[in-house]
Simulated assay, not measured.
Amino acid sequence: MLPPRPLAARKGRGAVSNIQGRYELDQRERFEDGWTVEEEEAPAFRTVVTDEYAKSILTRNASPDVPFNVSLNPYRGCEHGCIYCFARPTHSYLGLSPGLDFESRLFAKVNAPDLLRRELAARAYLPEHIAIGVNTDAYQPVERHKRLTRQVLEVLHECHHPVGLITKSSLIERDIDLLEPMAEKSLACAAITLTTLDPEISRTLEPRAAAPARRLRTIRTLAEAGIPVSVSVAPIIPFVTEPEIEKILEAARDAGAVGAHYVVLRLPWEVNPLFHEWLQAHFPERAARVMNRVREMRGGKDYDSDFSTRMHGEGVWADLIRQRFFKAVERLGMSGLRGRFERLDVSQFRRPLVVPGTPGKQMGNATGQLDLF
Rank of each mutant, 00 (worst) to 15 (best):
V66Q: 08
M297T: 02
R28V: 13
T36E: 14
P238C: 02
E246R: 07
Y93L: 14
R298C: 02
L2R: 12
K185T: 00
W269Q: 13
N69F: 01
W278C: 09
D33Q: 06
R118T: 13
A44L: 13
R331N: 09
N73L: 03
L279C: 03
Q280M: 14
L116G: 00
P359M: 11
L372T: 11
E200C: 02
T136E: 06
A366M: 14
R144H: 12
I227W: 02
E119M: 03
R10P: 01
R118Q: 10
R30L: 13
A257Y: 09
A260K: 03
V231P: 05
E246T: 12
Y23V: 05
Q27N: 08
M291G: 01
A288R: 15
K168I: 10
G299T: 05
E342Y: 06
C85W: 03
L216G: 03
Y53N: 01
R208P: 00
F31P: 01
D319V: 08
P243C: 03
L148M: 04
P74C: 02
E244I: 05
I236A: 05
P359N: 07
T59E: 12
E244S: 09
F31Y: 15
R46E: 15
E250A: 14
P89I: 05
L267F: 01
I19R: 09
M1N: 07
C82S: 06
F102W: 15
R350C: 06
I83R: 07
Q280L: 13
